[in-house]
Design a protein around this nucleic acid. Structure first.
Lengths: 209, 209
DNA sequence: TCAACACCCCCATCTTTATGGGATACCGGC
DNA sequence: GCCGGTATCCCATAAAGATGGGGGTGTTGA
């Protein structure tokens, strides 16, 4: 038996889902509210569904905030976003907040049901478009070949700075004079328009080099 | 009509897929090889499938390398990994190399077929376990509440360091004396067991604080 | 061939950091 | 009440870094 809860402000959709799921064998859907506030008021340790279907465009607290909230109190609950939004920001915000699935609102009810079953089996339901966007997130590996303005030697020096080495140690590591290290660092600062190693390290670790 | 290619060293599996897919209406599967090397030899601009089913455990060049290779030459090709491996490293390496889908080898042939169709529709086929791991990648946002040993003020100072500010500017920003900044930084170094702001910045940006 | 880079080295000077020592005060827990 | 932790300041000194200048060598491509 799977206990399902729903947060969805459109009463028609909400009722539709409830009545559909309630008819499915193995499903219980007795928690249906129109906002995160209502949800939090209804939830308790004894009365908490295993799966929560969550709309994003809600009155009051947003769906994403709601996900964080619920997850912090009930970490075991699986939350599936059910939204019209398919923009990357909404998707990744939801996932980072703790959503375990993301289905678009055009998903037929029976697929929604299958998605919930998938959760129980350790899967993560996603609409195809969502899955593609999530996968694409990793792809930027095929990035636009960031043409770093730094020469090879300069990049080696940057690595040394990131590693927290002094000029002297960088010189030793690269088997060059400390004066040469100085020379390169001067050029690095000029090329990156920065004025200290702190900024170089920050830029480097943020992938801006 | 979808043109499919296969790289799979187990001849039995390979033949099975080819014969299954060839029977499906709308599918052409005339490129089936046992290694990336063979694949690269067979591919040409005129003869390149839209979808490539790729095993990971291959003799010679690995599947992941193969994905990178193929993607760099034929960026439009969709590559679906078809592997027994379900460990995160393999998964993420594959996705970063440019795979658009990831199906485990226990996937029934008809689901494999559906997965390929999904690709054409802009989706990304993934086995449930894979989807969950991919989603979980984003979750660590709900991190293990890293109990930072640093006090609030010290953390503010760290932010200043990361921003590349001098002690003086940090003091101004926090409206305290530069001497207080010094004091806090001394304590930060002691607590983090580091000996310079470079290491603090690196640790901070790597999420180790 | 000449200009543009990357790379190597040296010097001088000034600022910023790192590290040690102090002092005072508030707060919470034992 | 005392102690540990936090926070606020001050001082002094040595090390590290930033910035300006000056030399060179080599490769590369217009």
């Amino acid at each position: 038996m799977i206990f399902v809860g729903i947060v969805e402000d459109d009463q028609e959709i909400r009722n539709g889902i409830v009545s559909f799921l309630s008819k499915q064998p193995g499903f219980v859907c007795d928690l249906a509210v129109g906002s995160v506030e209502e949800l939090l008021a209804s939830l308790s340790s004894e009365n908490s569904p295993q799966v929560l279907i969550m709309d994003l465009g809600l009155p009051g607290m947003s769906g994403v905030e709601g996900i964080s909230f619920v997850k912090s109190r009930y970490p075991e609950m699986d939350i599936v976003v059910f939204s019209v939004y398919n923009d990357p920001k909404k998707i990744f915000d939801s996932l980072c907040a703790g959503a375990t699935g993301y289905l678009l609102k055009n998903t037929p009810f029976n697929e929604l049901k299958e998605g919930i079953e998938l959760l129980a089996k350790g899967g993560s339901p996603m609409s195809p478009q969502i899955a593609r966007k999530v996968i694409d997130f990793f792809k930027p590996a095929k990035k636009i070949e960031k043409i770093s303005p730094l020469s090879d030697k300069e990049k080696e020096i940057v690595v040394g700075l990131v590693d927290g080495l002094s000029y002297k140690l960088i010189a030793d590591r690269l088997s060059i004079s400390i004066e040469t290290v100085r020379f390169h660092i001067k050029n690095i600062y000029r090329k990156l328009h920065v004025h200290g190693k702190a900024e170089v390290i920050t830029k480097s670790l943020r992938g801006e080099i």
